[in-house]
Structures are given as C-alpha cells and as structure tokens.
Design a protein around this nucleic acid. Sequence first.
DNA 1: CTGAATCCCTTCCGATACTG
DNA 2: CAGTATCGGAAGGGATTCAG
Lengths: 129, 129
Amino acid sequence: MMIQQQSCAFDQTSGVRKALDLVADKWTALIIMALAQDTKRYGELHRKIDGISQKMLTQTLRQLEGSGLIHRKVHPVVPPMVEYSLTLLGETLVEPLKALCSWAAEHFHEVEAAREQASTEKTNPNEAA
Amino acid sequence: MMIQQQSCAFDQTSGVRKALDLVADKWTALIIMALAQDTKRYGELHRKIDGISQKMLTQTLRQLEGSGLIHRKVHPVVPPMVEYSLTLLGETLVEPLKALCSWAAEHFHEVEAAREQASTEKTNPNEAA
DNA sequence: CTGAATCCCTTCCGATACTG
DNA sequence: CAGTATCGGAAGGGATTCAG
C-alpha cells in the first residue's frame, strides 16, 4: 500500500474523486437539486424524483445527512412527518451542480449528435473514404 | 410510457440525469480533468490516473470518444502511439467540472468532519442529552 | 505500447413485504 | 406517512491472458 500526495486539488485524482464519490451516486445530485428549491417531505421527494425506489431514496438521504449536506427534521405528529432541507454546506454544493446541469442543458444535444454519428460510422464505414 | 416535460433544465430530473450519467462514471471526470491540461498518451493516462485498470480506461475512453468529448489520434508508428485530447465540446465540460472539484477542495473537510461526527453520535448517543 | 477478451467476484439497486 | 428488511437479478469493475 502506498500513500500518494499532491498539492493541487484538481491536478491529481484525490480531490476529484472526493467530489465525484459524493455526487456520482446517481441519486445524490438529484436530491440536492430537488432540495435546492425548498424543504421537502419524504413523499414529496419520492414523487418528484419518481424514478427512485424507497430504498435508494432513504439510503441516499441517510448518506447525505451523514455527510452534513442535508438536514432531517422529524415532526412528532401523527401521521409521521419528516422534512428534508439543505444545510448551509449542502447549499454550497448547489452552485457547482447547477453549473454541471447548465452544461448538460446546453450541450447534451451535441453529445447525442456525436453518439448518433459514432453509430452511423460504425454502420457505414465507407463514409470515411 | 409517459412523457414528462419541464421548462427549466435543472428544475426536474431529466436534465440533471443527462449530466450525471455522463460524469458519474467514476472515471469519466478523472479522464476529462487529466486531459484538460494537455494531450496525453494511453500509457500516460494509465499512469496518471493510476487507480484505473486497462479495461476501464479503454472502456471509458471509447465512451468519451463516442460522445464527442475527446479525440483519439493514432500515430502509425511502431511501437504504436495513440494520443488523446479534448475536443472543443470536451473543453466546455472542463469548467463545470473544475467548479465541482473546487467545491470538493474547499468543503471536503467539512464533509469528513460531518461524517466523523455522525459516527461519533452513533457511538455516543448520550451526547445529545 | 495499445488494446481486446474472458473470468469472476462484488456491489448496486429494484421489487416486495412488513412495521410504527 | 415514513421508513426497515430481505431477496435476487443486473451491472460494475478488477485481474489475467492474448494480440497487433
């Protein structure tokens, strides 16, 4: 086992990995973005993100809470009511995330076009002649 | 099957998903960031990222090439030499990615502190008294 | 050097059922 | 409503081997 050290955060892998491991959870960013607008209840998140299962929602929520990015407020009422909101730390993540989403909104057409072209080239190799 | 439409890209899930599906590959962002500096050969990337296997490197490289984010230039020499570089489209992704990495560099201490505290609270529940 | 292909183990994650 | 527990398929990804 070796310890590798680097000075610049995005010059090497370590800093990048820490960011991605947090965000690349496929659901993490969705939840952050959903909560960026306002506080939401468990069911609201479940309905809003919709593709997510209870398992993944709860699991990701727990992880985000443990990482200090969201706050979980339990209201002692019946039926149970739990509200999730971003912490101050969580709010700082919204900006970079929005930057990424803006990029996607702006360029995903080009990405899909490139993919289309890549498929076409595989199908019709004579194009390259 | 239902079609859900939204006006704002990061208001709903679809736009966010497209961005994350591209970046959340655990290796994709690393490669983009590695190439952000300059053109690199296969072996250089392999050495620089280092945690990656040949399989994942090649696989991710192919995917990025197919998405039009990187360019693959084969030099007809022996031994073989292949250089990878960002396309113009790929370069547009660097900015948002750096934003994310900057966030990580700036806040990952807080995240780890929160995680530490979360573990402590589980171990010592009497803290909350 | 660059890469393809296989094996195989691990993790992810969705579906389902159950609880306070 | 807001979870927890378990099962099982699917996918991710590492190690190894072979090839041009």
